[in-house]
């Protein structure tokens, strides 16, 4: 009788210790996985020296992502004319989400609707989680967020994550650009075109002093005519 009670207690203790050890191990391995860097980190380069201001990107974005009229995920801002007739020229710069590594919009979102996709580094929005508080719109230093009048959720460029990228295609704006002024690719892949272009050209990013670490690069246009 005494013996059996003792054996029972011993057995239970051993079982408990084993189980807790296993769960500990499991959580440790899980946290290791989360910390592991993703192999894909998407970035975009707008080569302003090649941009002709045709706005095919704007049109393609609207069509592909069903962005209603009156709002836009992507705008081409035009300045000029510079120079004297007949040798005048314009400058075009892209205004869209910069896909910050440290995104203020994600930091302020109270519901978790704004998030950074761990697998691709894309800053995205879960429309069904968004309550429309507009904190993200206020927080974004690049002023590119808006409330979609159809979904009533915050909306912005997501590199076509749910549309073209999901189908294995390039983002709509990149595919539409006639002069190939937009280069999209994986920063983690040293052979990707985006890395090659970044290595070969001086590029700029907007408001880097804020520490947001944006991933939209621009090759700044020189003065003079744009060659086709």
């Amino acid at each position: 009788m005494e013996n059996s009670k003792r054996r029972f207690l011993k057995g239970t203790c051993a079982l408990l210790a084993g189980a807790s050890g296993a769960t500990l191990l499991a959580t440790v391995s899980a946290s290791n996985e989360a910390k592991a860097d993703p192999s894909v980190k998407y970035a975009l380069i707008h080569d302003e020296t090649k941009c002709i201001g045709c706005k095919a990107c704007e049109v393609a974005c609207r069509e592909t992502n069903h962005v209603p009229e009156g709002v836009a995920r992507l705008k081409i801002e035009q300045t000029g004319p510079y120079g004297e007739y007949p040798n005048q020229f314009y400058h075009f710069s892209r205004k869209s989400c910069q896909h910050c590594e440290d995104a203020p919009c994600v930091n302020v979102c109270p519901t978790g609707a704004a998030f950074i996709d761990k697998e691709t580094g894309i800053v995205s929005v879960d429309a069904w989680k968004c309550v429309g508080c507009q904190y993200c719109i206020a927080a974004c230093p690049y002023k590119i967020r808006f409330i979609n009048p159809v979904t009533h959720a915050a909306d912005k460029c997501d590199f076509c994550r749910e549309t073209n990228l999901a189908q294995g295609k390039q983002p709509a704006c990149v595919a539409a650009c006639p002069t190939k002024a937009l280069v999209f690719g994986n920063l983690k892949d040293p052979t990707s075109q985006v890395v090659q272009v970044l290595k070969a050209n001086p590029t700029q990013r907007a408001k880097v002093d804020l520490g947001t670490r944006p991933k939209l690069f621009r090759i700044v246009a020189k003065s003079g005519e744009v060659a086709i």
Partner: peptide, 12 residues
């Protein structure tokens, strides 16, 4: 149509 018109000449 406008952006397609640009594309006719600006082919890159």
């Amino acid at each position: 149509v406008r952006s397609e018109l640009c594309r006719n000449c600006h082919t890159g």
